[in-house]
Structure formats: C-alpha cells, structure tokens
Amino acid sequence: MVTTVGTERGARRRRGAGAGMLLTAVLTAGLVASCTSSDGPSDDGRGTTGESPARPDDRDSPPPLVVKIDNAPAARPQTGLDSADVVYTEQVEGGSSRLIAVYATGLPDSVGPVRSARESDLELLRQFDRPLLAFSGAQSKLTPQIERAPLEPVTPESDPDAYTRDPGRSAPHNLYLRPERVLDDPPGEAALTTGFRFGGAPADGEPRNDLTVRYPAARFTFTWSGAQDRWLVSMDGSPALTREGERLAPATVVVQYVTVRPSGFRDFLGNNTPFTETVGSGEATVLRDGRAWEANWKRPAAGDGTSFTTDSGEPVNFARGQVWVVYAEAP
C-alpha cells in the first residue's frame, strides 16, 4: 500500500579561469541556451557523521560539487545520480521537479543532464563553504543574486571543457558535466556540512513498505527492498534507473515538510518559479531500514545544516549511504 503525502582552491583544476569575471554575460547566454519552462560516514556523531556540524566560517576543507540535474521525462535515465552523497528534490515551474546532487566522497565520470539554477538553490547551498555549483543558466534577473552568493559557478561558458553534449539526446536534455575537469579529487566527507547524523536507528519506528510524495505535476515513490537494504526510487510511476539499468536506491529518505511560496521570478510562459524555504523548522518523515520515524527538522540560519530530532529531542540518525531529501509542501 502506498502512503501519499501532500577546497583549498589549489585542489581545483579550473578551465577558463577568467570567465568568472563575466558572470552576467555567462548567465544571460546560459538562459537563452537552456532555461525552459519545464520544468559512509562514521558513527562518531559530528557534522555529517554526527553531533556538532561546523559553521561555514569555521571550515577550511575543499568545497563539495553541486550539480543541478534535469528531471523531465526526456532527461531520464540521468547519469551519475547514484554516485551522489545527497540528492535534493525541489519543485519548479508548473509543479514539475528538478534534482540537486551533492558530491563529496566520490566523483562519477559524468553527471547530468545539467539544467538551470533557481533562487531557492542559493539559500539551500549556504550550508556549504563556497560550493562549486554546476548549472546551465539562470534568469537574467537572478544573475545579481548569483553574483553575490558565496559559491563558485561552473557553467558551459565559464568552463567549456568541463561539459559535453550527448548526440543521442535532444537539447536541452543533453548537457553533461565531467567532474574530473572541475576537481582533481573529491573533497571528502568533511565538505558535507549538512548537519545530518549517521549511526544506529532511533528506538521504535513504524514499519513502512513505501511512501509517495506528490508535487502538482510530479511524484516520487520510495519502496523498501529488504534484499538490497535500500529504498528503491520511482519517478512519476516508473522505476528510476541509472544509465546501466540499475535502480536508484538510497539508504535514507527524508520527506521534509517546508513552505513553498511564489517567488519574484517567472519563466517565459509566465509560470511562477516556486521558492522552497529551507531555513526554519517543521516536521519530517525519515525512512531507513524499512521503517519510518516522524521527526522535527530545524535549520536556524542559512549557514547552518539541518538537524532532525524526535519529539523527545533524540537525534534521528540516518543509515550509512546515500540520502535523498524530498522537499514536500507542508499541509
């Protein structure tokens, strides 16, 4: 039964380094090319591994690589999602969805299809220390905010050697990032300043076989596989696969109930771009080990990670492995 609910910089090998000074022109060009309407760890308890996540100004580790990934049907199956440490899902125009993949402990050969940035991304990514954000464009009115944001843009214009087009797919669903052209090595677990804790499961927990989250024009279903000890992902009713035909299967799934409000941006068809508020507090459902825990989430400021606790204040530890965070509109 399906339940439905509403770096040190020296570690980086940059290509076209002077292009960062021309960000406004880069993003405007990227918008024309690609912006459309459709759209582990140890158990010691600190940071991504447990108890006391570091603040951005306390960190000196290399930044993670973050990639905006297309999730339109024509973009599937995506490449490199199974290698991400964390995958976030967000609503975009028309009630459809996009994915945000974070890479720190490993880098795949290719990631994509890469698509455009949104205003919500800037708030979400403040939890990291100047992350590398790979995207293929943004609305021109969003450009000043991206310029001011504490991140390093990686676009087809600023780093052309880092991108390739798949001739077997049609644009705009055919742009792929080659991470090895952006980072010499993965930055490591210390870059994952998400606030997540990993370790043994909390007490109790309700047995759960599956859970579906619906957006106005998209849905995600997570089905427990005891054989794989993972949650099998389906998108819009179809199994979510890698390019090799394997199921996407995170160890932990978080359904985080947030405010999704209109932003000041619209696509060229006039559809408003939703803004997903990831700072604040609210409720969440955490899935791991074939069970579900009702939790409370808290992120006091944009520079903080997000903590998850039970009603009694006990931290909700995640299972080792990939984490999916699905931002669902709070009831």
Rank of each mutant, 00 (worst) to 15 (best):
4 T>P: 07
5 V>M: 08
7 T>A: 08
8 E>C: 11
13 R>P: 10
14 R>N: 08
15 R>W: 08
24 T>N: 05
30 G>H: 00
32 V>I: 08
33 A>W: 00
33 A>F: 01
46 R>F: 03
47 G>K: 02
55 R>T: 07
57 D>V: 09
57 D>I: 06
66 V>D: 05
67 V>N: 07
71 N>M: 12
73 P>D: 12
77 P>T: 06
78 Q>T: 07
79 T>I: 11
80 G>Q: 13
83 S>H: 14
86 V>N: 04
94 G>D: 02
101 A>I: 09
110 S>M: 05
113 P>S: 15
114 V>K: 04
118 R>V: 01
119 E>R: 13
120 S>A: 11
121 D>N: 06
124 L>A: 00
126 R>V: 00
128 F>K: 03
128 F>A: 03
129 D>P: 03
129 D>A: 05
134 A>F: 00
142 L>W: 10
142 L>Q: 02
142 L>T: 03
143 T>W: 03
145 Q>R: 15
146 I>V: 06
149 A>D: 03
152 E>L: 09
152 E>Y: 07
162 A>I: 11
165 R>P: 00
170 S>K: 12
173 H>V: 13
174 N>I: 13
174 N>C: 10
174 N>S: 11
175 L>R: 00
181 R>V: 14
186 P>G: 10
189 E>A: 15
190 A>N: 04
190 A>K: 10
196 F>L: 15
196 F>Q: 00
199 G>H: 04
202 P>C: 06
202 P>G: 01
204 D>E: 15
205 G>Y: 01
214 R>A: 12
215 Y>S: 12
216 P>A: 14
217 A>E: 15
218 A>G: 09
220 F>V: 02
228 Q>I: 05
230 R>F: 14
240 A>S: 13
241 L>I: 05
243 R>E: 10
251 A>Q: 12
253 V>Y: 05
254 V>P: 06
258 V>H: 02
261 R>I: 08
265 F>P: 02
268 F>T: 15
271 N>T: 03
273 T>Q: 12
276 T>G: 04
278 T>N: 07
282 G>P: 13
282 G>E: 15
293 W>T: 08
293 W>G: 01
295 A>P: 04
295 A>S: 14
296 N>M: 03
296 N>D: 10
298 K>Q: 09
303 G>A: 03
304 D>F: 09
313 G>R: 13
314 E>S: 02
319 A>F: 07
319 A>H: 09
319 A>R: 15
320 R>L: 04
329 E>D: 07
